[in-house]
Amino acid sequence: MNRASLIFAALLLVAFPLSLLAGRVWLDPATTPNAALILAELRLPRAVLAIVVGGGLGAAGAAMQGYLRNPLADPGLFGIAPGAALGAVTALWFGYSASAWLLPLLALLGAGGAMALLAAIAGRTGGIALFTLAGLMVASLAGALTALAISMAPNAFAMSEIVLWLNGALTDRSWREVAIASPLVALGIALLWRSGHALDALTLGEPVARSLGIDTRALLWLLIAGVGLTVGASVAVAGIIGFVGLIVPHLVRPFTDNRPSQLVLPSALAGALLVLVADSIVRILPLVTELRLGIALSLLGAPFFLWLLLRMRRGLA
């Protein structure tokens, strides 16, 4: 475990109990009525889910930036999140939102479909440019189909449900979502972590990585599976939560020696921390209806992205 992992693990240990207490009603275990029940059935699963979702998104972002050798890469760009969203939207369109397992199942199928499409188009050659273009095309196809579903929603209720769901949130999530997402995300992070040394070799470009014995095609499959599991499972239980995969690796990089392999695990921890804190903040904010987590993180993420571009422009000029 490197220094960055220790720092973010420690911060996470501090933030976790605080987030259990934080909310519209601050929990005082001694005086709040039904404190134990609120904790066990509402706050705890929500906090655990925030950690699972954030961890998966952070690790996926770190691995994708390493693979594409580009600090502006976001796992959302590569079609898997839009694919999963399309699956979930399909469930909502047909009015299956009340069914406990159908929505996450269809979302996972959507993510799997996007992964299969990516692998079919780009998996044979293992080229980075082809993979990026294929991802963008899968993303825009899934996005277009989602927009089509919204415009042809059977009723206003379904439409509002879809739009709300697309702005991801962790509101009212239970242990069921934790049970669905955690094994998939854990497996995905393990695959991404395993790709670390190959990502290090890619620092010197694809020909050198291959000359060092890296099988770039196997690496691509590993990444598609890893990102598919982490991002697909996250979208399946929480909807679209953007910018985590983009921001987190940047926040973590200064604490590492910049090697991609050193970034995956601390990015998982920092992603967990970011989503946990952001979700606590949207609970505390004194608004009539709770601010959707996806919207809050985009409000945070877009200015960050602009700041990043400005900084890079100065560096390049």
Partner: peptide, 18 residues
């Protein structure tokens, strides 16, 4: 091409990868 600003020693160590 060197994509990330990594320490020189780590770059040279990549040669040990095989």
């Amino acid at each position: 091409e060197i994509a990330w600003d990594v320490p020189v020693r780590n770059l040279v160590e990549l040669g040990r990868m095989p």
